[in-house]
């Protein structure tokens, strides 16, 4: 992609007053990111901005490179070329631990939760608070409870419930709350509603929206168009390793995204707001 993807102003419904948005610098900026596995070009010259306070949806068919892209950001893969900028500074993310240190949390599709531990224990796993060499249970329980109620996750009976006894939506909520608890700046979600029913999907999407409203950057991977248009402020479309479009969600509709995902172009008439720059149409 040759043109600069202009960061799009926060939409009215988001309260994007986080650092990145305030200075005009997106929280995360990818410049010319490429990644190949042998002869397979998984990602080719990706330029993408992920601003704080907004939900950026990453759409694409199977094999489009969505997973590779988020793995590059979360430190599981290292890109072959290109640059990752965090708050305007180039960074090298070599491991999930380094990503976490920057404030990047990934909520995995297969939910990295331990069934045999309770909600508090899962939320603090790996970063337990310790007093006098013993676990500070009360402190952790209080913090976990506060985080959950601040996100209005009220469906769980008790924070001392085992994760095994939670529904899919509740587990997803716990996984997301975990990211908030650790003061993440960017939360990457891989198909967070894939296995959920209607009511639970709505619950998780509300939660996703709430994260962005709190000023976090959210990168949402999904090929469910309903979900994408329900919560996303911006939609980035990947096709065969190329980023074919980055649009404001308000400017396009599901049919356009499907066209972009499958053919890389869309001739359909959408309702662009005249003042807005179309950012990636010249790509096709």
């Amino acid at each position: 992609m040759s043109t600069e993807v202009a960061p799009i102003e926060a939409e009215p419904r988001s309260s994007a007053e986080a650092s990145g948005a305030a200075t005009g610098e997106p929280l995360l900026r990818l410049r010319g990111l490429s990644k190949s596995f042998g002869a397979v070009h998984a990602l080719v010259d990706i330029n993408l901005d992920v601003p704080a306070g907004q939900v950026t949806a990453l759409a694409g068919d199977n094999g489009a490179g969505k997973s590779v892209l988020i793995k590059c950001i979360s430190g599981i893969h290292s890109p072959d070329s290109g640059e990752i900028q965090w708050e305007g500074k180039p960074v090298h993310i070599r491991s999930p631990r380094e990503a976490a240190a920057l404030g990047i949390e990934t909520v995995h599709q297969d939910l990295a939760l331990c069934d045999n531990l309770d909600i508090v224990q899962n939320m603090f796993l790996g970063r337990e608070r310790v007093r006098h060499l013993t676990l500070a249970e009360e402190e952790m329980e209080t913090a976990a409870g506060q985080t959950l109620s601040s996100l209005a996750v009220t469906t769980v009976r008790s924070v001392r419930q085992l994760v095994a006894s939670l529904s899919g939506g509740q587990r997803q909520s716990v996984a997301i709350a975990k990211a908030v608890l650790w003061n993440s700046r960017l939360v990457i979600m891989d198909e967070p509603t894939a296995a959920l029913g209607v009511a639970q999907t709505a619950m998780v999407l509300t939660l996703v929206r709430r994260l962005a409203d709190r000023g976090l950057a959210v990168l949402l991977v999904s090929h469910n168009m309903n979900d994408v248009f329900e919560v996303a402020d911006r939609v980035a479309v990947l096709r065969l390793g190329h980023l074919v479009a980055v649009e404001r969600a308000a400017d396009i509709d599901a049919q356009v995204v499907v066209d972009l995902m499958t053919t890389g172009t869309s001739t359909r008439a959408t309702q662009p707001k005249p003042a807005e720059p179309r950012t990636a149409d010249d790509q096709a």
């Binding site: 999930p96 631990r97 976490a100 995995h108 939910l111 990295a112 939760l113 331990c114 069934d115 045999n116 531990l117 224990q121 899962n122 796993l125 790996g126 970063r127 337990e128 310790v130 060499l133 013993t134 676990l135």
Partner: peptide
Amino acid sequence: RRTKFGRYVYAIGGNAEAARRAGI
């Protein structure tokens, strides 16, 4: 019950992959 070590023992037994991702 009261130490990180113990918590991690349970975590590994419950879901080793989750424990690994948690940096254990």
